[in-house]
Design a protein around this nucleic acid. Sequence first.
DNA 1: GTATCCATGTAACCAGTTACATGATTGC
DNA 2: GCAATCATGTAACTGGTTACATGGATAC
Lengths: 183, 183
Amino acid sequence: MAMKNNTKFAILGILSIAPGSGYDIKKYCDTVIANVWHENYGHIYPVLTSLLAEGVIRRQEEEQEEGSRRKIYEITQKGREEFITWLGEPAGYAPVRSEFMLKFLFSSSLPRENILQMISEYRVRHQRKYDELVQTQKDLEADYFIISADRKQYLKAALRFGIISSEAAIKWCGEAAGIFENK
Amino acid sequence: MAMKNNTKFAILGILSIAPGSGYDIKKYCDTVIANVWHENYGHIYPVLTSLLAEGVIRRQEEEQEEGSRRKIYEITQKGREEFITWLGEPAGYAPVRSEFMLKFLFSSSLPRENILQMISEYRVRHQRKYDELVQTQKDLEADYFIISADRKQYLKAALRFGIISSEAAIKWCGEAAGIFENK
DNA sequence: GTATCCATGTAACCAGTTACATGATTGC
DNA sequence: GCAATCATGTAACTGGTTACATGGATAC
């Protein structure tokens, strides 16, 4: 199962909301959905080229001001169809590979304080992420961003996903630190 | 930051507990630490070869019964040193890429029942994982496996990590389903 | 006038996956 | 006698990362 061709569908999904450039797609990933998805320029641009060749996206030539370097793409009918098909398929899952947990698992040769330090850093990272997400949630609630009520609902749910996950990580840190503190 | 060379350190970590073959390493990944780590044969064997060339592991020639195909490796002093250094470095984190959340985010064009179905499948998957981990925890508690008290402590903590994460996912599913049920 | 953001791309690289190949041993 | 497990490996592939290159526009 694993994961393949996800960048294709991430791009189709983003373009299904609104047409945009490679740069726009990257920005969308880094802001709106950073919480659950990630892409690089080095992958977006070549994939855009291949999606164009496949005919699932097309250049939106109209309404471009002269001299603009921006290349705006929009999803085609074929693209929408393939996207809907993909949506209907069960999500593949990537096998877990947590570098932090790998380190933690084999950290018995480290002094107690170092292990506590490791856990503390991990907690701080998740606490920061948590705070960030809560802030974004407030901004979203306060209609700081201009999006449809429908879209907002999905983004809110995705934010909750991140918040709940961060809470879980923080909870684990508390438990794990407890083991090493009382010895 | 991202993640590089993790297989090297996963192998060194596993061999730091006890010498073993490529097959043993794979089995260890699939059972004991499946919860937080994953490896393929197609990667383990070539990496073992390169680790041998680097001198961080060595063949344990002694005590092998005749005609055995098993190749037992053990970590060298150099390997232990590199492993300790790696342990001391802060863990890199892989940017989140949840195929499920990607689908969910853009699923607004799907009928309500399909979205509920998606969420339900996701919940079932995590519930199953949760049940499995709780069972493993019981087996571990009942000294079903032969491991040192020290090792047990780390494995228990890693199990808790999986259990807490599954609980979080299940919690999210409850919330998300709620959004679509009451409309 | 300089830093930051906008904007697009390529090339080299690498980690990891999948599929294939082979064969011995053990348990039923 | 057959299936499952033990056991090791290679080759082709692919998805994604990193580094490099370039240059215009905007803000301070």
